[in-house]
């Protein structure tokens, strides 16, 4: 079965200089799209990938990553909206590159569709009441 999944990969310092993703793609026959990549000042690496391929290959790839020492988790848990702080103003709507925010035509409330979210974090600091939160 073909799957397409978004995952967050966290690389400890010891792995930052190794060709993990290259091996991942070559050996497990997956297509990938880099949604986000960064290396922190302490040299921990963060990579957000969309991986496409066969379900069994995907599972083997995840097992390989875990064994190599990469911490993995599905992306959907990354960006959350604090519903208490959101005021439904709508400032986020024009900032989001994937259109994850939409204004309901009837209620004018701002809907957040987290399946469209690629965790680019553009909404975090542009939300006036700071309702968008990053969690790992």
């Amino acid at each position: 079965m073909a799957v397409s999944r978004r995952v967050v990969l966290r690389f400890p310092r010891s792995l930052v200089d190794q060709p993990i993703v290259s091996k991942l793609i070559r050996d497990y026959n997956l297509d990938f799209n880099i949604l986000k990549a960064s290396v922190s000042p302490r040299e921990e690496g963060l990579l957000v990938l969309e991986l496409m391929g066969q379900s069994k290959d995907f599972d083997k790839a995840m097992a390989y990553l875990t064994e190599a020492g990469v911490v993995t988790q599905p992306l959907s848990r990354d960006i959350r909206r604090n519903e208490q702080r959101c005021t439904d103003c709508g400032a986020c709507v024009v900032m989001c590159p994937t259109g994850a925010f939409e204004v309901d035509e009837v209620t004018r409330k701002v809907l957040f569709e987290d399946t469209k979210c690629i965790a680019c974090e553009l909404c975090l600091l542009t939300c006036p009441p700071r309702a968008m939160e990053l969690t790992f």
Binding site: T87, D88, C89, G90, A91, C92, V93, V94, M95, V103, T107, R108, K109, P128
Partner: peptide
């Protein structure tokens, strides 16, 4: 503005509110 876009010089510009209509209501 509330339709989500306005047109200027033939270009569509996406609009965003800073004031909350649901909370005003």
């Amino acid at each position: 503005l509330r339709s989500g876009k306005i047109e200027m010089d033939g270009k569509e510009i996406p609009t965003a509110a800073l004031s909350s209509y649901p909370r005003a209501l």
